[in-house]
Structure formats: structure tokens, C-alpha cells
Amino acid sequence: MTNLVRSNFQAHPFHLVSPSPWPINSCGCLLALTTSIVLWMHAFINAQYFLNIALIVLISSMSLWFRDIISEATYYGNHTLAVQTGLNMGVGLFIVSEALFFLAIFWAFFHSAVLPNVAVGGLWPPRGIDSINPFELPLINTILLLSSGVTVTYAHHSLIQGERSGALYGLVLTVFLAFFFTYFQGVEYLVSSFTLADSIFGSCFYFGTGFHGLHVMIGTAFIAVGLWRVLAYHSTDHHHLGVESSILYWHFVDIVWLALFISIYYWGC
């Protein structure tokens, strides 16, 4: 019995991750997803069916992976203070990498907008492109996204203070506002007079706003999972790393949108 206790004794506060099939399975699904997207773009027969299958299997694999992580954090108590510190650092580094990704997009935009070359007639926006009025749908989306930043901050402070109802209301309002932001972004794309293929202006516009829209959808799912965990009593006033990470990610999405609105929508048009 003494030997058994000693063998189970851990002299450090870090969690040693158990063997899991989900990382390699998710990698395979991502490879299948990207390959099927390329095939679908080139109009290969039945490529869309492979795309749908890869997407469904990827979502299932990631959901099961997240289930295991939630069990480790909530039921097994493996996420000690040292583990939470490392996870916070990982989320911070991930957001920094995303910021550098958007920096490349803004670099491409300003490189083309400040000194437009002869291929676009030396004008910005290029001749023949009717840019979107920033004080219509983009302004509405800005109000929606900034309002969601307020509601998610309210939810965060309510959770820290142990006010569960305030946290729930704040997260529900955040998801609600994020949904309408995505909806109006889709409407904007439908009524736009130019496409992705319309010179470097269209490429920069849709690349920047489209990838931001993708981040909004990911952030919405992130916050929705946090909402479910608060609802299921997984998150407490002193242990809510998942919800806090989603809120930090959402503030990053807000800041990127402000930069997009000022540079691409307002200054760029």
C-alpha cells in the first residue's frame, strides 16, 4: 500500500496529459477539409460531399476533445493554478499570433492604398468600384460589436463577483449581438457592388472583413460554450478560465473591427 501511494504521488503541480486520439484525428480532418475545399473550388465532382463529411467529422472530433478537457478541469481537478497560468499564456500567445496575421492584411491594404500602382489606374478605390458607405451597415455593425464588448465585460465582472444571473444575461446578450453582427455582415456582402475578383481593392476588403467575420463566428461559439458552462455550474467566481479566455478573444475581435472600420471602410473609401 505504501508503494502504491508513493507511485501515485506527484511532486509538481502540472497536469500530465493522458494519451488521446483527438489531436491526430483533428489533424487528419483538417487535412481532408482543406483538400476538399480546394477540390470544390476547382469544381471537382462530388467534392462538396467530401467537404461536408470532413466538416462534420472535424466538429465531432473537436467537441469530444473539448469534452475531455472540460472533464479534466471541472471534475478531475487537473487544472491547478500552475496549469491555468500556462493556459493563460497560451491564449495570450495565440491572440498575439492572430494580431500579426491581421497586421499582414493591413500591410497589404495600406501598401496598395497609399501608393496605388498603374494596374488600378493610380486611384484608390480603383475606377469603377463603388465602395461601401461606412455610415450605413458598417456603422450599425460597429455599434453592435462595441455593445457586445460592453455586455461581455458586464458578464465577466458579474462572474468574478459571484453574480451568476448577471453573468448569464451578459453572455446571452453578447451571443445575441454577435449573431446580428454576422447577419448584417452577410447582408453587406450580398448588396455590395464589387466582388473578391475586383482588383486588389476587392481582395483586401473581403480578405480583411471576411477573416474578421470568421473570427466573430469562432468567438461566438467560444462564448456560447462559456455560457453553457456557466449555466451548468462549471464556472465559479475563482475558476472560470474558459469563459475568461473567450472574453479576452472577444475584446481582440472588437479591436480588430475598429481598425478595419477606420482604415478600410472610412479612410479607404
Rank of each mutant, 00 (worst) to 15 (best):
P23A: 09
I24V: 11
C27Q: 07
C27G: 10
C27T: 12
G28A: 05
C29W: 03
L30M: 15
A32W: 11
L33Y: 13
T34R: 07
T34N: 08
T35K: 03
S36L: 06
I37K: 09
I37E: 08
I37Q: 04
I37H: 04
V38N: 07
L39A: 14
M41K: 12
F44P: 00
I45D: 13
N46H: 14
A47R: 04
Q48W: 09
Y49H: 13
Y49F: 13
F50N: 07
L51S: 10
L51A: 04
N52S: 05
I53R: 02
I53C: 02
A54E: 04
A54T: 03
A54R: 03
A54N: 07
I56W: 05
I56S: 06
V57R: 02
V57P: 01
L58M: 09
L58C: 03
L58Y: 04
I59L: 13
S60K: 06
S60Q: 04
S61L: 00
M62I: 14
M62V: 15
M62N: 13
M62F: 05
S63E: 07
S63I: 03
S63A: 15
L64C: 11
W65R: 03
F66V: 13
R67G: 05
R67S: 10
D68Y: 02
I70T: 05
I70R: 11
S71T: 09
S71W: 01
S71G: 01
S71H: 14
A73H: 04
A73Y: 07
T74D: 13
T74H: 12
T74L: 06
Y75V: 12
Y75A: 07
Y75F: 10
Y76W: 01
Y76F: 06
N78Y: 13
N78F: 12
N78I: 00
H79G: 00
H79R: 04
L81K: 12
A82W: 05
V83D: 10
V83G: 02
V83L: 08
Q84A: 11
T85P: 00
T85G: 15
G86I: 09
G86C: 05
L87Y: 10
M89H: 01
G90Q: 08
G90N: 11
G90T: 14
G92T: 14
G92R: 09
L93Q: 07
I95A: 08
I95W: 00
I95F: 02
V96A: 13
V96N: 00
V96Q: 04
S97Y: 09
S97Q: 08
E98N: 11
A99L: 14
L100R: 02
L100A: 11
L100Q: 03
F101Q: 10
F101S: 09
F101N: 09
